[in-house]
Each structure stands twice: as structure tokens, then as C-alpha cells.
Design a protein around this nucleic acid. Structure first.
Lengths: 356, 356
DNA sequence: TCTCAAATTGTTATCGATACCATTCTGCCC
DNA sequence: GGGCAGAATGGTATCGATAACAATTTGAGA
């Protein structure tokens, strides 16, 4: 046991270092590589004394475990893959945070990708992810290409679809009905006396949640006998604040007597409100506006925005927990139940015209 | 070559599948595993005809390449690691998007982590990332624990620090001086006649960019002979819209005659503006307010918010490009230059009192 | 027809850790 | 004191692809 603790600090910036392997740590300590490997895991049986010596050596040498080698032999990659439509949307980044938090201290790491609301990009990403042999995968929505479905099926890992209730779930589901949530908002506002409803959303092809909200809107307006809903499609999802502003202008040009406008998201609602104010209209006195998603901005801005609060973080967290459960259960599949997540209407100033 | 193209579609949901290996594809096609491996890369020399046959087999069998095995033997993980303070902040998610986009079609995949503005969490994440042997790593800021620096040094991979100009850069830098940017904003507003400046930011310990903005503010106010700056610390970074509102109340209680308030970010500025309006103050007539970061909201809201536009996406993109260059260059390190990214003052309604 | 370089394909060793099984050691009990 | 369970440790094969080199085929030119 020579005393070479200090490997002559020769500032080797980016170079020969990194050759370090478990075997060398083992030699340094005077044990076998297998024992070093065990020292890195908690469940393994290594004497406390040996582990301590090994960890000191690891520290002194600056060794860092190589998981890519480990995962090959153990057949466990330690990855969970998750795909969200957009990473810039705070609803989805909340979900991503929920996943990450749930994964903490499980030894699993998140591989995150964003699909840009495109099924083809999702397909490509799924393949890229599967090449890393994730132990489970979390998707947003239930709309996938055939090849994507086949790959997922073949992969034989638990799959969780989130943020909606797919008609044909692949496996696990953690989400809610966007259509019913929007329907609830329509009914709530209708019960407050609103009659002439408008809707603003993106062109539907890519954003399935958006199109479900739209159809929930249309269906409910009809059911309530409030005539055909006045819906505007504007821009490629996700629609921005600015597009929300442009859309409401179109809508009011076409149907000037609209009383209340529901938007596919708070962001477009905010843009719509600001545009109305800029044009001298008062919200909610002249026009009431509501959003969807309960973004931070909606409770802060003036007027504050009526919306649907969705448990974004909880969706991520629960999806990850479902996945962890499924992994624990192993092949004795626990049945493909649907976990419904909560949502609720949050009434705020933007639709508050007092008693009507 | 038996015709077993259709492996009797036996709906094997999550089970025995997945055993598929390159060798089996090879056997199926009647070539060696090596040839299959070559077929997956573009540069490799395989006859077009063979590649086609192999790819058909891959398709028919549903084989998915296993990169964890490949990266072990090729000694290239195909990962780039990136750490950002928060994934929920649109400035940083723009940066993450810039990185991802720059990585497209390079065969490199992003491993993303968020540090929650904590150096200790960063240290843990760096270790977790290094265990995957990334080929390069992108960090936010220049403040790291000693152990983190040592690990990075030892790893011998290119490191890019972003979003600020560290005093002691590890390697590459892509960023700008937060202090000077804030200073520019102060000077610009001073030239418009503002004299009594206030500042709102989080408690400084964790958010180094925030503290640089603060010190840039204080220094410049002093230099201009405008007396000691009136700075409020409020809340743990990142400070929210709501905290921005609370902070400006404190600030105005203490210094009621403040003319203009600069905020560490647009989000807190927005919260501050809304709170002022709620209390019946007019912005900018009674109090002018400015932010930092040029978030989408700032151009849309009313009044629109004066701010510093930062090229968040470009920071990510350029950081990734620097990394790719460094990887290409190999060990002939290309010198540790600093790439400065642009920023500019964007004057909007929230500080526009007309000619003063 | 023969030669030789380039293109294509195959063989074997290896990447660095872990699974699996064998071995050694410790200490307790009858 | 012998036997034996259980803890600690070691040896070897292996995970699934790719590097490196060898072997074979192809085709153009002499």
C-alpha cells in the first residue's frame, strides 16, 4: 500500500485522465473489482471497513462509476424516457419536474425529449429513446404513429400516457378528459348567465388536447341550446399570446355580440385580454374571457383570468409513480387502470360581471 | 432464407420480446453481425444492396439498435449533458431548446438536469451525468463547488459555462456580463431623466446572475451620482410574480419617492406592475418599472415592460456549437475563448413618461 | 488473361462493469 | 472440538455492440 494519495497534481486539463477503471481502484485498495462494484451499491454485502477504504480510494483517485458499462451487464439502463410536446410551456415543464422529483433517489435518470406537437417527431424520438433501453417511458397524449405503437409494444416496457384519456390506451394512463374539463367551464359560465359563447384555439391537427377542448366546447354549447359555438382556429399549436390577441380580433369581427370567449390556454387568453384592452374594450364588462391551464400569470394579471386548474406537476409525479410501481411489480402486470387527475374551474375577474 | 417475415403476430404485450440482438438480425439476413452494425452507420462501407436487405430485416423483426452496448465498445457515449437552474423558467428552457436544436442530426443526445439554483445539487448532478460519460457538458454560470470543479477537470471533456462570464472559467464560455447589462439599463433610463432608482431581486446567495445584476445596478447608480441605490431583497431565487408584487410594496413603503424600479427579471417586474395597478398607482405615470430577460409576456402585457433582451436560445445554440467544435478538434484544444452573446435594452411603455 | 487497388465482408478481441457461483473466513452452538 | 450457517470476498463468463485487422470479392487497366 504505497502512499501515492497525491498523484502529483499535474494540471492535466482534458487529456490522459479518465482511463481510470474499477479494476485500478481495486488494485489500489488491494481487493477485487467485484468488491469495488459491491461497495457502490447499498444492498451488497461488503464489510463496512472495506467499503470505507474503497470509498477513500475512489475519492483520492477521482474515480467516477461508469454506468454505461454497468447497465450492459446488469441489463438495467437506469433510464426513464419522457416525451412532452414542448419544454417551453410551463404546464409541461411542471410535468417534467414532477417526473424528475418522483425519480429522485430511485437511481433512475430522466431522458427528456420534446416532440413539438408532431407525431412524426415523436416517432423519431421514441426510437432514439428506445435505443438507450429505458426501463419505462412516459408520453404525452394518446396519438401516436403506427410504427411508434409497434416499437413501444415490442419494447416490452411499461408505458404511461398522460394529459388525456386515449381511446385506445397502450398501457397505463394518468390524465383527465380535456373535453369534459372544457365542458365544465362552459356549464359553469352558462350558469352565471352567459349565453353567446366564442372559442379560440389553434388549428387542430397537431394538438390533440386542444382539439378535445374544442370539441368539448362545441358539444356543450349545443347541448345547452346556445346555438352553434363560435369557434376560431388560429395558428399552429401551441398558439402564442400574440396569436391569442389576433384571434379574438377575428372572432369579434365575425360575431360582434359575443359575450364570453374561452381560449385553449391561458397564454392565448392573456393575449386576447391585452388586445381587447388595447382596443379600448373593458374585460369583463364588454367581453368576458377565460383560459385553460391556470398558468402563474393568470392569478397575477389584471384582470385575473378565469381558467381550469390542472394538476400538471401531479400528472408527472403520478405517472412516474405508476411507472415505478409497474417496474417493481415486474411482469405480473398490475392491470392497465386509468389514473384520473383532478382539475377544477377557477373563477376570476375576467368573467366576473357580478350578478347577471 | 426461410419465409418467416410474419412472426405469427402473437400480441406479446410486454414480455419475452426484446431479446432481439444484432447477431440474430445478422443470422436472419445471412451476414455477420459486423455487417449489420455497419449498415446502421452512414460512413461505413456496406453495399447498398446488403444495407437494404438488412434494413428490411430490421423492420420485419422490429429490431432497435442498442446504444448502451455500442457506446461501451466505441468509447463514445453519444451524450451531451446540460444543467440549467430551472426548467420552468422560459429563459432557460429556451436555452435548452437551443442546445437540443443544435444537436439535431449530430447523433448526440441531450441529458438535461436542473440544479434548482443550488451548487450542491449541481455537484450531485454533475457526478450523475459523468457516470454516463458524456462527451461534453454545458453548465449555467461559473459558480461551482470545489469537488465539482475537480470532477470536471478529471473528466477531460469540454465544458461550456453559459449565461455569465465567470471570473475563473473552466474551459469555454458563452455568455454576457449581467452586471454590465443591468448597468446599461440604468444609464439608459438615467439619460431619460430618471433619478431615484430602486431595485428588486431575490436573496443573492444562490442566484449568481441575479447578484451580478444587483451589483451592476448599485455600482452604476453610484457612479452616476444618484446616491445609494435602493435595493430590496425578497424571497429565494427564482422570485415569482407574486413575490415581485410583495417586494415593490416593501420598497415603496421604505422609499416612497422612488421614480423607477428595476427588477431582476420580467416575471417579478410583471408582478410588481400588477400589484401597483391593484393599489391604484399608474405605471409609468406614478412609478416606472423595468424587468430583465424579455419574456414573451413583456411585449404583450399592458403596459408593456421595458427590459433587457437576452439571446437565450442563441446562448444554448452557440454553447452546443462550441462543444461540437471542440469535439471535432479533439485534443488540439482550440483555446478557451469567451463567446459574448448579445443583449439590448428594449424600451416600452412601463418606463415611458414621455419627454421629461 | 493477369495484377493490384478498392470495396465489401468476416473473425476475434475488447470495452468496463456485474451475475453467478465458488471459496474463504468468522464465530456460534451442541 | 467438530460442524455449519452466514458473511465477506474472489474468479470467470458475459452483456451487445464495435475496433482492428484479415480475408475475400470486384473491377479496371495493362
Amino acid at each position: 500500500m504505497k502512499n501515492e494519495d497525491e498523484p502529483k497534481d499535474k494540471r492535466l486539463k482534458g487529456g490522459d485522465a479518465q482511463k481510470l477503471t474499477m479494476a485500478e481502484v481495486a488494485k489500489y485498495v488491494g481487493v477485487s473489482a467485484m468488491t469495488v462494484s459491491r461497495a457502490f451499491r447499498q444492498d451488497a454485502s461488503v464489510s463496512e471497513e472495506t467499503r470505507k477504504r474503497i470509498m477513500e480510494a475512489v475519492d483520492a483517485l477521482g474515480y467516477v462509476l461508469d454506468l454505461s458499462a454497468g447497465s450492459l451487464s446488469s441489463r438495467r439502463s437506469g433510464f426513464i424516457a419522457a416525451l412532452v410536446p414542448s419544454i417551453n410551456n410551463s404546464n409541461f415543464s411542471d410535468t417534467a419536474r414532477g417526473i424528475t422529483d418522483a425519480l429522485e433517489n430511485t437511481g433512475l435518470q430522466l431522458l427528456l425529449g420534446y416532440t413539438d406537437y408532431a407525431a412524426e417527431k415523436e416517432e423519431k424520438l421514441i426510437e432514439a429513446m428506445l435505443r438507450r433501453r429505458p426501463e419505462g417511458i412516459i408520453l404525452t397524449g394518446g396519438s401516436h404513429t403506427d410504427r411508434a405503437r409497434r416499437m413501444l409494444d415490442k419494447a416490452g416496457i411499461p408505458v404511461v400516457e398522460t394529459w388525456e384519456i386515449p381511446e385506445e390506451p397502450i398501457n397505463h394512463v394518468v390524465g383527465f378528459s380535456n373535453s369534459e374539463a372544457m365542458s365544465l367551464l362552459v356549464r359553469t359560465l352558462a350558469s352565471q348567465g352567459y349565453r353567446r359563447f366564442g372559442y379560440i384555439g389553434g388549428t387542430t391537427a397537431r394538438d390533440t388536447r386542444g382539439s378535445q377542448r374544442r370539441s368539448g366546447f362545441l358539444k356543450t354549447v349545443e347541448e345547452l341550446g346556445l346555438g352553434p359555438g363560435r369557434a376560431i382556429s388560429f395558428g399552429v399549436p401551441p398558439i402564442t399570446m400574440e396569436q391569442g390577441g389576433q384571434a379574438i380580433v377575428s372572432l369579434l369581427e365575425r360575431w360582434p355580440d359575443t359575450e364570453v370567449v374561452l381560449c385553449v390556454s391561458d397564454l392565448s387568453a392573456f393575449g386576447a385580454i391585452m388586445e381587447c384592452k388595447r382596443r379600448g374594450m373593458r374585460v369583463p364588462e364588454d367581453i368576458a374571457i377565460a383560459g385553460f391551464g391556470d398558468y402563474e400569470i393568470s392569478s397575477i394579471c389584471h384582470p385575473s383570468i378565469t381558467t381550469i386548474n390542472v394538476d400538471c406537476y401531479g400528472i408527472g409525479r403520478q405517472a412516474a409513480v405508476r411507472l415505478l410501481d409497474a417496474l417493481q411489480a415486474g411482469s405480473e402486470t398490475t392491470g392497465d387502470e386509468i389514473t384520473l387527475t383532478s382539475y377544477r374551474v377557477v373563477l376570476r375577474e375576467s368573467t366576473d360581471r357580478g350578478v347577471r
